[in-house]
Each structure stands twice: as structure tokens, then as C-alpha cells.
């Protein structure tokens, strides 16, 4: 996600608009206050991964639906 330390309220609103989500200015201000919590979570899932650290996907070729 975009870095909220440099993301203004206006940028937050534009981001939501690009995602196709319409919010009132009042609601945008309320939700904008939660952005630091999301940023902290997004930062936490970034570890010292190596190239070999694959995501925990489950995908089995040749087995439809699985």
C-alpha cells in the first residue's frame, strides 16, 4: 500500500475513488484515521524473505477445482 506517512487525506480519497468506492468527505476523514493501523500491518508482513520464500498458496496443476 502507499506510505500513509506521506499520504494526505486528499490522496486517500483519490485512492478510494480509483478503487471505485465512493465515500462522503466526513466518512473519508473517519476512515483516514485508520490508515496508520493498516500501514503497520502491511509493514509487519514484510520480513527478511529470500527468493525461495514462497507464499502459502495451494495450487495443484491438473486437478480441476483444487
Amino acid at each position: 500500500m502507499a506510505d500513509p506517512s506521506v499520504m494526505s487525506l486528499e490522496e486517500f480519497e483519490r485512492h478510494l475513488a480509483r478503487a471505485g468506492l465512493a465515500v462522503t468527505p466526513e466518512k473519508a476523514r473517519e476512515l483516514y484515521a485508520c490508515v496508520p493501523f493498516l500501514t503497520a500491518m502491511a509493514a509487519r508482513v514484510r520480513a527478511d524473505f529470500s527468493y525461495a520464500d514462497e507464499p502459502a498458496h495451494v495450487f495443484a496443476a491438473g486437478r480441476p477445482g483444487r
Partner: peptide, 24 residues
């Protein structure tokens, strides 16, 4: 509605990094 709207702030890369963290 509010929680889903906030979810739009997360990116595809965030999701994949979380899946890598999940495996660990």
C-alpha cells in the same frame, strides 16, 4: 462497509507478503 472500504488500501503485494509470512 467501512471495513471493506479500508481493505481497498491494501495492495496485491501486501497480500502476497502476508501469504509468505503465513508459510513462515
Amino acid at each position: 462497509r467501512d471495513r471493506l472500504t479500508l481493505a481497498a488500501m491494501l495492495s496485491g503485494v501486501d497480500y502476497v507478503q502476508a501469504l509468505r509470512m503465513r508459510r513462515r
